[in-house]
């Protein structure tokens, strides 16, 4: 049995008490309270064409269920590479999320990576929320089953050209506290990814097609590892896709 599947089996033990507590609530509260909510969506669902002819399909999706006080969230990130016909990235996170401030949530759980290459399981501790001046922030500390620690950071800012045409600027980076050569992670700054996407809210906020550009750059040992494996260290992508939310 892989170590991550044990983690998944633990999930129902966490969820069950919450659900039964909900059933015990009295009728008045049930009749007049919004109660638990759910949502499912994909912040990114896109095709990327690089300046070197590389083609990628990228999905960043999430689904949640829960109350104001406690949410369970599944986050998925996948990168499918056209030329190798393979999933370069497959990342599943199962986290519990609780508010710690008016604008910030803490989250904790596990992340399971099952790409083409070696698998990894991580413990996750994160912070997500809205910073002053409307920056959406998401940052996490990961500790892998190999004992390696890393931190990622994502920021997004939306600029309203109109109330339907929206430019979103994104910045993403990852810093590893130790090397994990097997999966191409060098110690220190690994990469940065910057994106600019122009979207249009076609159906409410449920379906918003976009076009954009993404710049990706690898640094230090991580860049060397990538070069050694015959990969590139810096790419420009044209992207086309849609933001989806149900």
């Amino acid at each position: 049995m892989k170590s991550w599947s044990r983690g998944v089996l633990l999930l129902p033990l966490i969820v069950a008490p919450v659900l039964s507590a909900h059933a015990d609530k009295d009728r008045a509260v049930d009749a007049h309270s919004a109660g638990a909510q759910w949502g499912i969506g994909a912040e990114k669902f896109e095709y990327r064409y690089s300046d070197t002819g590389e083609e990628l399909a990228v999905v960043e999706g999430d689904a949640f269920y829960g109350s104001d006080e406690l949410k369970f969230r599944w986050l998925f990130e996948g990168e499918w590479e056209e030329t190798h016909d393979a999933w370069e990235t497959v990342e599943n996170q199962f986290v519990a999320q609780v508010p710690v401030d008016d604008f910030w949530d803490a989250k904790g759980g596990i992340r399971i990576d099952t790409p083409k290459g070696p698998d990894r399981v991580y413990g996750v501790l994160g912070l997500t929320g809205l910073a002053p001046y409307w920056f959406e922030i998401d940052t996490n500390l990961y500790l892998s089953d190999e004992g390696d620690a890393s931190v990622d950071f994502e920021a997004e800012y939306e600029l309203l050209i109109t109330n339907y045409w929206i430019v979103s600027a994104t910045f993403e980076t990852m810093v590893a506290l130790s090397e994990d050569r097997e999966i191409g992670v060098g110690k220190g700054l690994n990469y940065t990814e910057m994106g600019l996407r122009l979207s249009y809210d076609l159906i409410d906020r449920a379906f918003s097609p976009y076009v954009g550009v993404v710049h990706e750059r690898k640094f230090g040992d991580t860049a060397d590892f990538a070069e050694g494996d015959g990969g590139s260290t810096e790419d420009w992508f044209a992207v086309i896709g849609a933001r989806i939310a149900f």
Binding site: Q37, G39, D68, R205, A245
Partner: peptide, 10 residues
């Protein structure tokens, strides 16, 4: 209600 809870400015 669900949309507002997911995104207050929906």
């Amino acid at each position: 209600m669900r949309n507002l809870k997911t995104s207050a400015d929906y």
